[in-house]
Amino acid sequence: MKKHIIDFEVSSNEEVGNNAILMKLHCPTPLPEIKPGQFVEVRIDNEPNVFLRRPISINYIDKKANEMWLLVQKVGKGTNKLGTLQKGDTLNCVVPLGNGFDTKAAQGKKVLLVGGGVGVAPMLMLGSTLKEEGTEPTFLLGARTKNMLLEKELFEQTGRLLVTTEDGSLGEKGFVTNHSVLSNEKFDKIYVCGPTPMMKAVAGYAKKAGIDCEVSLENKMACGLGACLCCVTETQEGHKCVCTDGPVFNINELTWQI
């Protein structure tokens, strides 16, 4: 897939709770082809303490509006700067990057999409793409507490939504891996994005249950293009770049002790 450097125009940038923002970015030219699970490298301007671009997953593509959405948790210098962008500002992105999820592998299967924290971001686009391709997605999203769950309504509109919260304020109490759906229903494909401990727990469940499982990693990156070799993860075939061979890996490719 051809990569582009594009100056997007911010259409809107809203606080969506849990210290996160949803940025809708208008593309001045028709949006390039983008797959769910792919990401962009955004350039953070006018923030002298940020030197490198920041990798952010593509949350959703609104084809009608020619907009790309980014869901960003403000955790540091760069992401906080993104929070200050206003309608009409530009955001320079290298897009699209990474391999994306294998949606073909979902065809005719019962699929579960698991997201935790800001890791729900790519799941919205994945779910809507699966739906377009004729697969009904079930989302299982985890949050610490009720108002930390991001984009709840959008997920509800896209598929069946199951939730766990650590304090029980919404959905079932506990972690995603404690949800009753995992023992009551049989899925044959799982996609996961979220904090590493959560991904490992879900991957462990999938492995034991013999379910095909893809995870999306968030290693630190410099180039995002497979050039610097900074973002590597350990795989069965040695070090691989998360930015080009990933960010999505089948758990069988990784060397996780699960």
């Binding site: 002298p48 030197f51 490198l52 630190k220 410099a222 070799l229 900074c230 973002c231 590597v232």
Partner: peptide, 23 residues
């Protein structure tokens, strides 16, 4: 060469430190 283990990158003021290790 497999190079060094992850993490291999630190951002620093107006720069970065890498330890790719000639992978």
């Amino acid at each position: 060469r497999e190079g060094n283990p992850y993490p291999r990158l630190a951002e620093t003021p107006q720069g970065m430190i890498n330890a790719v290790g000639l992978q």
